[in-house]
């Protein structure tokens, strides 16, 4: 409750990176292959605490694979991942994941509130059922994404943007330090996109680290303060203002890419 209030009072500003110099996520020599074909090749990546980072790259560059490998959903053939210096398995409670919206069947018989409550299952552990405390936290998360009015809606009766907000609320309720999001802006309208990016900026303001697989290159400088270029290999990673340039874009996308960076 307190946290919500504090976050609301803060103004949204993306000019000052909140980075404290601590490394939140460290990826070493990560290689992932499907069927002998490498999808990710020898990735070294350090993500500082408190950044709002975009992972960009063409289709098939391994962006989702990178996130899934960090989260242990996919098994890499080589390499290691640490979260604040420890293996992911020991740090699960620090990490929240927003999968691609299309990865689940939205006709599943359940309500919006129920899906958000799933975010509390991790801290509950085995067998224990969510109670009043979990319900309250879930309702707060729904309110934060502007979906409180839809809490009893069957999830198939929500629009694509609303479904995405539900997924976001489910991650928010985990109260994590690091958020991984797989294309949260895919197929959402402008209003929802703004609502989502404001929440992500609030998260960063609160000192959280947010990593987003992103497709719209035009909005990278506006939304993010950190960026990783990926195309099977890591092309570059760093502050948007330093490395988001035509050179890296061309290296990543293989065509002569010109993007006008708005200051």
């Amino acid at each position: 409750m307190n946290r919500t209030k504090i976050m609301k009072e803060q103004t949204i500003d993306n000019k000052t990176p909140a980075s404290s110099g601590v490394i939140a996520v460290k990826v070493d020599d990560l290689t992932v292959a499907y069927n002998y074909k490498p999808v990710l090749w020898d990735i070294d990546l350090e993500i500082p605490e408190g950044v709002l980072m975009a992972i960009v790259g063409p289709n098939g560059a391994g962006k989702s694979t990178l996130i899934k490998s960090i989260l242990g959903i996919l098994k890499p053939i080589a390499g290691s991942v640490t979260i604040y210096g420890k293996p992911y398995k020991k740090q699960r409670q620090l990490v929240a994941y927003v999968p691609q919206k299309g990865s689940v069947d939205w006709d599943f018989p359940t309500t919006a509130l129920d899906v958000v409550m799933m975010g509390t299952y991790g801290s509950l552990g085995w067998i224990k059922r969510p109670g009043q405390k979990e319900k309250k936290a879930s309702l707060e998360a729904l309110e934060k994404v502007g979906m409180l009015a839809f809490k009893s809606r069957q999830i198939s009766q929500l629009s694509g943007g609303q479904q995405q907000r539900i997924f976001l609320a489910r991650a928010l309720v985990q109260n994590a330090s690091i958020y991984f999001m797989d294309e949260p802006f895919q197929g959402v309208d402008a209003t929802t996109e703004i609502a989502i990016i404001n929440i992500l900026k609030e998260l960063r303001k609160a000192g959280k680290t947010v990593i987003v697989v992103h497709h719209d290159l035009q909005t990278v400088p506006e939304y993010f303060d950190w960026v990783t270029f990926l195309n099977v290999k890591k092309i570059a990673t760093g502050p948007v203002k330093d490395i988001f340039n035509d050179d890296n874009l061309t290296k990543t996308y293989g065509i002569n890419y010109k993007v006008s960076i708005q200051e």
Partner: peptide, 19 residues
């Protein structure tokens, strides 16, 4: 019940929660 439900809906996510 809780574990069955979340696995049925979103298996990958369930895994990231540590189940």
């Amino acid at each position: 019940w809780k574990e069955f439900k979340i696995l049925l809906f979103d298996a990958d996510y369930t895994q990231t929660l540590g189940f």
